[in-house]
């Protein structure tokens, strides 16, 4: 009987994990904590937030970073989001692929690279003012649910990162939660640099 209970608990946790990916969590405390104790983390102010309409997390995070770097000239946010969506969103896949995100960023005049990230690398990039796009898996290994987030800060004190994710601006992901979801994509990380404001990013 204990075995059955354990299996049931595991199933419940799996289900909860599968569908809790976009559940909003309060972020104000973490951001305030970073501001109060900057030595324990970093937070990049002013990363534009594009709410992710259904299945549009790829275009949303790319638009955030492109706009943050001052790209796309005078296009309105809506126009920018529409352009990126048209370029990277694939209806038949119900989502966006990293190769398309790379191709869009490069075609728009940015430097873009995809690589195997790590928490150390993430912290270093955030400290130097560079938001990173992470590709995470909110589902299971056997049933992946790919999701893009753009990380804007971290706090070692709170053991958490903050990221624009889905409909949540500065959503909080605990290190453990992020590690679990990020590991399932091989820690895939997209770094976009360059653009008109690139020189003012490093500080």
């Amino acid at each position: 009987m204990p075995l059955k209970r354990a299996v049931l608990a595991l199933l419940f946790v799996s289900l909860a994990g599968l569908f809790s990916g976009c559940a909003p969590v309060g972020s104000v405390g973490v951001v305030e904590s970073i501001r109060a104790t900057p030595e324990s983390g970093a937070y990049i102010e002013g990363v534009p937030f594009f709410p992710d309409r259904s299945q549009m997390c790829g275009p949303a995070v790319l638009a955030s970073v492109v706009r943050f770097l001052g790209g796309t000239g005078g296009a309105t946010d809506a126009r920018l989001f529409e352009d990126i969506s048209r370029a990277v969103y694939r209806e038949k896949l119900k989502g966006a692929l990293l190769p398309d995100m790379l191709a869009y960023a490069r075609a728009a005049g940015f430097n873009a690279e995809v690589y195997v990230g790590s928490f150390e690398d993430l912290k270093q990039r955030l400290k130097s003012g560079r938001p990173l796009i992470l590709f995470i898996n909110l589902g299971l290994d056997i049933y992946p649910v790919g999701h893009y987030i753009v990380v804007t800060g971290y706090s070692d004190a709170e053991q958490a990162v903050v990221a624009h994710s889905g409909l949540d601006r500065d959503r909080v992901y605990g290190y453990t939660e992020l590690e679990s979801a990020w590991r399932k994509t091989g820690y895939s990380t997209l770094l976009v640099t360059g653009g008109p404001l690139s020189d003012s990013v490093d500080r």
């Binding site: 976009c22 692929l97 399932k184």
Partner: peptide
């Protein structure tokens, strides 16, 4: 991508 095939899943954020 060849080393990390998991990174070639589409990202849509929804089941």
């Amino acid at each position: 991508f060849a080393s990390q095939l998991e990174s070639l899943n589409p990202g849509g954020g929804l089941v």
